[in-house]
């Protein structure tokens, strides 16, 4: 039954405790969704294979899917080693961005002056062209993890701050009035009401950040003079005429992003299950 369908419930049942209901929305079954994704993927791969075979494209520019697949298998240990490097960078970067972004959003929420003065700068930080600053960061921070974390963190930070700040701002003003008549201090309102209410925002931001963080990691490796990682592998593979390997590395990156996104969604369901229930305060 959909959330809206519940309006028609007979009133007599309303005073009876309602059975626990998981998730309020109708959604296609997981199997059906996966089948759909597989069908679309197969169609795309088929079209790609066909084009590569009969289109007369140079395989150095566009390798056929079967060539990419064979590279996935033959280069598996090389891909795996480099994935571990990039995955480490991305995970650490998102973690840093998550902690810093959440803290920053709370600070901006609490202080109007800070919000007015800093928010435009935050937006501006997103326009920094990474390829230009990456070499500078390397000069400042060396060839290690430092510059990569800065770049990934910088990119992931913004969506996390925006969504967390929105979640903080969406706390019901009536709720805040009620808390004031309960003599709650600013700090206790933050601790007992606003911080938990901001967690779904943090998760939304982190999910957006996953995709941009992977792109950020590739940029960081390519423009930050890295000697390992999937981004670096792509960069090395092309001049070596191993376009199939470059495509294989990109494929691995996408798969990694999907897995990370899935894990975040799972963590969200476990940690903030209430975020997907019907809104608080509506009685139906």
């Amino acid at each position: 039954m959909t959330r809206f369908g519940r309006i028609g419930d007979p009133p007599a049942t309303l005073s009876v405790p309602r059975p626990r209901r998981r998730g309020g929305r109708r959604r296609p079954s997981g199997l059906l969704g996966a089948l759909g994704t597989a069908a679309i993927l197969l169609a795309l791969l088929g079209a790609w294979e066909l084009y590569a075979q009969v289109g007369g494209v140079d395989p150095l520019i566009l390798p056929a899917p079967h060539q990419v697949a064979s590279s996935l298998w033959l280069d598996r240990s090389l891909l795996w080693d480099n994935l571990r490097v990039t995955a480490g960078e991305v995970l650490l970067g998102i973690l840093v961005a998550g902690v810093a972004g959440f803290a920053c959003a709370v600070a901006l929420h609490v202080s109007l002056a800070l919000r007015r003065s800093t928010y435009p700068l935050l937006v501006a930080s997103q326009t920094i062209p990474i390829p230009l600053v990456a070499p500078l960061l390397v000069v400042w921070l060396g060839f290690g993890l430092g510059p990569k974390l800065v770049i990934i963190g910088l990119i992931s930070f913004f969506p996390i701050v925006v969504t967390t700040l929105d979640a903080l701002a969406r706390v019901d003003p009536e709720q805040l009035k009620l808390l004031r008549t309960l003599d709650a201090s600013r700090w206790r309102i933050l601790r007992h009401v606003e911080l938990p209410a901001a967690l779904p925002g943090l998760f939304s931001g982190a999910k957006v950040a996953v995709a941009v963080a992977v792109i950020g990691a590739v940029f960081a490796e390519v423009f930050g003079g890295s000697s390992s990682g999937l981004g670096n592998l792509v960069q090395q593979a092309i001049p070596n005429l191993r376009t199939d390997r470059a495509y294989a590395a990109v494929l691995i990156l996408s798969a990694f992003a999907i897995v990370l996104f899935g894990l975040l969604t799972l963590a969200e369901r476990l940690l903030v299950p209430w975020a997907h229930e019907s809104p608080n305060g509506r009685n139906r």
Binding site: E174, L182, R188, A275, N280
Partner: peptide, 28 residues
């Protein structure tokens, strides 16, 4: 005076008991 608004404004993440106890929790 304490306000009781039209909507119950219970916190969706907290148990019923913790929601009631909120009045005491916010006073420390």
């Amino acid at each position: 005076a304490v306000l009781m608004p039209q909507r119950d404004l219970l916190l969706p993440w907290a148990s019923a008991l913790d929601n009631a106890a909120l009045a005491l929790r916010v006073r420390g």
